[in-house]
């Protein structure tokens, strides 16, 4: 699971009102070298929940020095975009789990694929 995906995920446990963002508990994290595409990263940034991304990166120990608030004019800032590229696309949680911040329900991540399936009684 890349942090790009994590940024889209929310808890859908029944009755939960604040299920976002999910907490990450990682036991295995992999970093893949990927081609840096500044246009792609700049286009993704406005769609992100910035705070959730920075928090997730922090939890995994890959925050670098990314600011808590999104900076202005990031399109021109290649160094910044490279950092975002790294946390968004290169860092990947292979094993671990995602935890619903409200209910505490845990969703396992196995071989990089989160299992967000709920039991009958959770849904």
């Amino acid at each position: 699971m890349k942090l790009l995906t994590h940024n889209m995920l929310t808890s859908h446990v029944k009755g939960v009102t604040k299920g976002y963002p999910l907490l990450i508990k990682a036991t295995e994290v992999k970093v893949n070298q990927l081609d840096f595409n500044p246009q792609f990263v700049s286009r993704m940034i406005p769609k992100l929940e910035w705070g959730a991304l920075v928090q997730a990166a922090e939890d995994l120990g890959y925050r670098q020095d990314l600011p808590g608030e999104l900076i202005a004019d990031y399109e021109q800032n290649e160094e910044f975009l490279k950092k975002v590229h790294r946390v968004l696309l290169e860092v990947e949680v292979m094993e671990g789990c995602l935890k619903c911040p409200e209910s505490g329900r845990e969703f396992p991540i196995t071989k990089g694929i989160p299992n967000m399936l709920l039991n009958e009684d959770d849904a």
């Binding site: 890349k2 995920l9 929310t10 859908h12 990927l34 990089g112 694929i113 299992n115």
Partner: peptide, 15 residues
Amino acid sequence: KSIQLLKASSMGLPL
């Protein structure tokens, strides 16, 4: 690099 996978039900998407 561009495709991610997720296990969930189409009737309850965690998105």
